[in-house]
């Protein structure tokens, strides 16, 4: 029987060294809410688990709306939900993180885990992408920063190189009347994986006209996909703009038929959610 080792390094450099030196299959552990399920189901058989939670700074939130926020990679969804300043500045990111699994799961699950599990349906990922989030990655050749949307390359696959792991997330300073929102569709009211997820960030001018927008869809393609937001820029999100947005969202869909939904259903609901999420983000931005 291949044996499994567990280590919990206490510095970033130790963690990088352990990951870089590992010869067999290795997994980085933050919240563990996906990792333990996969372990038990036999879908993965790592020889080494590297628990990052003993690294100082890997959990916790610093910063403000004015200067942007830095969120430790293993910070739990529950902590994000309890952070009033973050919640006020980035309600969409926080509501997305607080939709991952149950309240129990939110007591452990992290943004880094949700991103690196690389599921097309991950709730927090479209929200972080729409918010313009970036990640700081530690690796054998030092640290680097990358946009959140550059990490997932396909179901279960990321762009992280051997020895690399995510140390933190950064959400930019809030400029002007900007806000975000995240909605997902699930068959029940809780506990399901997103059939479609949609993150939207919108900036409006004093008159309520949209000056910038970023939209990301989840669960409708092998990775999160951007939606061309030009159809709503310069509008006040009137019915005509919403109809164009609906069509633009549907045009980006390349989903699969599976136990969670059909191609036709996912595509239609992507349009519905794009409209509804944009409306919430628009109203929030206007209220700034």
């Amino acid at each position: 029987m291949p044996s499994l080792n567990y280590v919990a390094p206490t510095t970033v450099s130790d963690a990088v060294k352990i990951l870089a030196d590992a010869s067999g299959p290795t997994r980085v552990l933050s919240g563990g809410t996906d990792l333990l399920v996969q372990l038990r189901a036999g879908r993965i058989s790592p020889e080494l688990i590297v628990d990052t939670k003993k690294i100082p700074g890997i959990m916790g939130i610093t910063g403000s709306a004015a200067e942007g926020f830095t969120i430790g990679a293993a910070t739990t969804g529950a902590e994000l939900g309890d952070h009033q300043a973050l919640k006020a500045a980035y309600p969409g990111v926080v509501e997305a993180a607080n939709l991952i699994g149950s309240k129990q799961v939110q007591g452990r699950a992290s943004l880094a885990g949700n991103l690196c599990n690389a599921s097309p349906a991950a709730d927090s990922v479209p929200a972080v992408i729409a918010a313009g989030g970036t990640v700081t990655i530690a690796g054998p050749s030092g640290t680097r920063t990358a946009p959140a949307e550059s990490i997932v390359t396909g179901p279960g696959r990321t762009s992280l190189a051997k020895g690399e792991f995510i140390v933190s997330f950064h959400l930019p300073a809030i400029k002007g009347k900007t806000s975000d929102a995240y909605l997902r569709f699930i068959p029940r009211t809780e506990m399901d994986i997103a059939v479609v997820g949609c993150g939207v960030s919108i900036t409006v001018d004093a008159g309520g006209t949209i000056t910038a927008a970023k939209i990301s869809l989840g669960a409708v393609a092998p990775t999160q996909v951007p939606v061309d937001a030009s159809c709503i820029i310069g509008t006040k999100l009137d019915d005509a703009a919403l109809a164009k947005l609906d069509a633009a969202a549907q045009a980006m869909c390349n989903p699969i038929d599976d136990k969670r939904g059909t191609i036709e259903f996912r595509t239609k609901v992507a349009g519905v959610l794009a409209r509804r999420t944009a409306k919430i983000a628009y109203d929030r931005a206007g209220a700034r």
Partner: peptide
């Protein structure tokens, strides 16, 4: 599994 065999939850 209980993830995709969807029995009602309290919030439903």
């Amino acid at each position: 599994g209980f993830l995709d065999y969807r029995i009602p939850v309290a919030s439903d």
